[in-house]
Design a protein around this nucleic acid. Structure first.
Lengths: 203, 203
DNA sequence: GTCTATAGCCTGATAGAC
DNA sequence: GTCTATCAGGCTATAGAC
């Protein structure tokens, strides 16, 4: 299922380029930079990829391959709605919470992606997860809320927590445990499930 | 209070550069591009800004100036917690929902900002809003939740809705009214305030 | 304060030896 | 499949005339 015909060197190139693209963006990375990281010259890159754009697209494809296979077991392992919500949150955190590279790539693509690259992300990640979690989200929306918006809100809560972390860490009240993925998951789950309504839950 | 000593041409340069930086990023914009948009040559830019980095920083400073002045009236105009939550959401949407440029700049800065530029955003936007909404958020958190995390979650829900819109529009269930800021505000408010718990609200 | 001209560098990409 | 050498073009920034 994985990227089929890459030689060993090609894989090394892809894996070397990903942290660079994630950190500095497409325009911020030179072919020479990638070559140097691999330990070859820039000219040699063209034996494996026809140009910079192709290399970048292949790297994206490689990075986002096979990220969603575990979703089904993940979601069916819980028996109640709250448990399934927690599983869905845990799933997003597993994909985007820990992996800085994947998250940065996504963030940059949300600004820069053309139609082809958006379609790649859609097919590799978001559509499978959307379909895999459709029942759960619909159940949670329970007719009183737009399921599509809810799906995006759950994803957004997870993503934004990590993407805003440079600012978050400078705000008053920032604490080390705010980087702990388990606690973040619990916080998001509680917020989404119980909401802020004070009725019956006043301290 | 606004950027003090800019000449008319300097302001024209800043305003011309902002849409370009927002759309293509720092590395994606050439001094020639900015100059052309203004209607002068690239060399003339250096009479107003000492270099590209200075111009970019000044443009950021200019874009994010005086964005938070209306917060206090905004929040004190509501008398109940839910109303104040709605006001806070409306405030974020007012800043980041409508203004594509401001939102893109912030999104790019979250990936690329150095310490100085982060500090700029912090001082100009996030710290004032944090302090201005501190009481409201603390009241909403009501002891059962981390107020700092809640503040970030509210901001994140608004931001991510718009930032994910390229993907969102390609997902099933996308509808035109999902771009309507009023409806988005209502959705986020309902989600945050009432949560997803089915008790007593089953259809 | 703007222009033309250009320096100096970095860029993606190619040619051809090995 | 990798190297060296190189090209053509784009970049920021400067010099100097007006």
């Amino acid at each position: 299922m994985n990227s089929p015909g890459y030689s060993k060197t090609a894989v090394k190139i892809l894996e070397a380029s990903l942290p660079l693209f994630a950190a500095r963006g497409y325009n911020g990375v030179a072919m020479r930079d990638i070559a140097q990281t691999v330990g070859i010259t820039a000219a040699a890159l063209y034996n494996h990829f026809s140009g910079k754009e192709t290399l970048y697209f292949s790297a994206l494809e490689y990075a986002f391959a096979d990220k969603v296979s575990s979703l089904h077991e993940e979601l069916s392992a819980a028996s109640d709605p709250e448990g399934r919500l927690r599983r869905l949150i845990a799933f997003w955190i597993e994909i985007f919470g820990g992996d800085v590279i994947l998250r940065s790539l996504l963030q940059r693509e949300m600004s820069d992606a053309d139609e082809q690259r958006l379609r790649l992300l859609l097919d590799r990640v978001f559509l499978p997860v959307y379909e895999g979690s459709g029942v759960v989200v619909t159940e949670l929306a329970a007719g009183r809320m737009d399921a599509h918006l809810l799906f995006v809100a759950i994803l957004g809560l997870v993503l934004s927590h990590f993407q805003l972390s440079p600012i978050r860490k400078l705000l008053p009240g920032s604490r080390p445990e705010h980087d702990d993925v388990e606690r973040v998951a619990a916080h998001i789950a509680q917020l989404l499930y119980y909401g802020l309504e004070p009725v019956g839950r006043q301290s």
